[in-house]
Amino acid sequence: MKALILSALKKRRHGPALSAPRVLLATYILLAVAAPLIAPQNPYDPLQIYGWEASSPPGAAGGGGYLYLLGTDGLGRDIVSTILYGLRISLVVSITSSAAAALIGLTAGVSAAYFGKWVDVAIMRLVDLQLSLPTILVALIAIVTLGPGIDRIILALIIAQWATYARIARGVALSEVGKPYMDAARLMRLPTRRIIFRHLLPNSIAPAITLIPIEIGHAVALEATLSFLGLGVPIDKPSLGSAVANGFQYLLTGQYWISLFPGLALFGLIASINLVGEDVRRKLDPRNHAQ
């Protein structure tokens, strides 16, 4: 693992370290972290919101002494602030759920490959079952079952995503288990723990790790979709997705900014995650640094 990261870092020095997607993603993260400091308004605080200024167009001056740079939404919340706070929720939800899904999926997949027999059958039946349905459907069923709330959303996303990691990790681990160096380790009568952690995991983990950025992108989109369908985060604490959703009814009456700007922010976020993710995956692909 250490060698893997080191070699990735070494590669980084040769490549363009400051590609556009990376800068964009870094900006997003900075903005999310600093949101309470830089947002003109706290959209969660009813005292700071002026209902009579609802649906103000971009550039309108507000009574609270704000300039509504991107306008206000149907409840009078400043769109810039909604985006900044929504960004936090979207990122927290997607990163938490992807990390947890990766951990669970990786453990399940590697265990299935190493122990085989009924462990493998049990885990992979479940994985196959789940992967034979579209992710959005699984997330939908999960959230309908679990009920509303941010914690439930995270749980639903973990349920929807762990199987992808499990299948990848199992596939890789299975091909590693069949390699002679694993046989050699067994012939030494190494303790099972050492075989798994010293030999199997370090060699199986890379492809699953490269999945994480891409899956975070998926998680952002999934959360946004669920929120859009009214099954996600509560309306008073909108994520980027629910901010777009809130603007949908206004779109048809011409108040396009309520959904356009949060949507653009969302698109940029997912695109930058995906591009950086692809980049990471290419760099960590063993076929690219075999020599």
């Binding site: 979709t225 859009f228 777009v244 959703a245 959904s259 969302l266 698109f267 997912i270 995650i273 995906n274």
Partner: peptide, 8 residues
């Protein structure tokens, strides 16, 4: 295209 959320 794959990054655009379908509803947006």
């Amino acid at each position: 295209a794959l990054s655009i959320p379908s509803f947006w």
